[in-house]
Amino acid sequence: MIDRLYTQMQAMQVLNRSQEMTADNLSNINTPGFKGTKVFYRMFQENVNGKTISKSVPMQQVNLEQGVLEPTGNEFDMGINGDGFFVVEENGEQFLTRDGRFHLNPDGYLVNSSGAKVMGDSGPVQLAEYMQSNGETGGNAMLEVSKDGTIRLNNKAQDRLRIVNVEDPAMLNRKGSAYFSVIDEDMLSEDSTGMVMQGYYEKGNVQPLTEMVDMMRNMQAFESQQRALKTTDEMLSQVTTRLGRF
């Protein structure tokens, strides 16, 4: 009966973790470039007091399905159609992201909404000439980003956005709502097949209806385990009381 209590408590912990992941997905529906988390369960066996007990542990994997590319008309907005991630640098660390809402900071560096510098083949992308051209001519410099990430200013190549791919998505570690990292950079490859779309940004790929259905199922399963746990506890209490009479 103790084993039954342990199993029921374990199931409730698994369902609670699953619910947390679902809630996180729903809270980031409107986060550009957000990639939802898929939940799956892996069975392990462990020895408890000489008995082998199967244990179900919730695991998470990033859902890399393509999000909708929303046109903005902003020449600094970038979306990736297909595989791949932009690389940004913040506080000395490099992260992967699908959020391509960029702009120029006062120093002419291409940055995201958090101020992280967007990386190119030659390091942080700097377009000081863009600002200088606008200041000198009083007009608009022509900025063009081709599908392979090459940045041209007035038809002159300046740099190329660094787009990387992750060989094994299971190795992605989420860092906040927009960033990812990998333990080993050897997992990254430069042969991404994704195409850069200038003037677009990628919406999150969370499906609200699917997440709401998952949330309801988790709640129902959790309540079912609660009732089962209460029943087991009452039975254990009765057995203990009866044994105490002898």
Score class of each variant (00 low, 15 high):
M1C: 02
M1W: 07
I2Y: 06
D3Y: 15
L5K: 01
Q8F: 00
Q10S: 13
Q10C: 03
Q10A: 09
Q13S: 14
V14D: 00
V14A: 15
R17N: 09
P32S: 03
F34Y: 15
K35D: 01
V39N: 02
V39K: 00
M43F: 10
E46K: 07
N49M: 12
I53M: 07
S54D: 11
M59D: 04
Q60E: 13
E65T: 13
E75D: 01
F76A: 07
D77M: 05
M78E: 05
N91L: 13
E93F: 03
G100P: 00
R101Y: 02
F102H: 04
L104H: 09
Y109M: 08
K117T: 11
G120W: 05
V125C: 06
Y130W: 12
T137K: 01
G139Q: 14
L143Y: 08
E144D: 10
D148E: 15
N155F: 10
K156M: 15
R160L: 12
N165K: 14
E167P: 00
A170C: 07
M171Q: 14
L172C: 01
N173I: 13
N173P: 00
F180K: 10
F180N: 06
S181A: 11
D186I: 12
D191P: 04
T193V: 08
T193P: 01
G194R: 06
G194W: 08
V196Q: 01
M197F: 04
Y201D: 04
E202M: 14
G204E: 03
E211D: 06
V213I: 14
M219H: 05
F222A: 03
Q226Y: 06
K230E: 14
L243P: 07
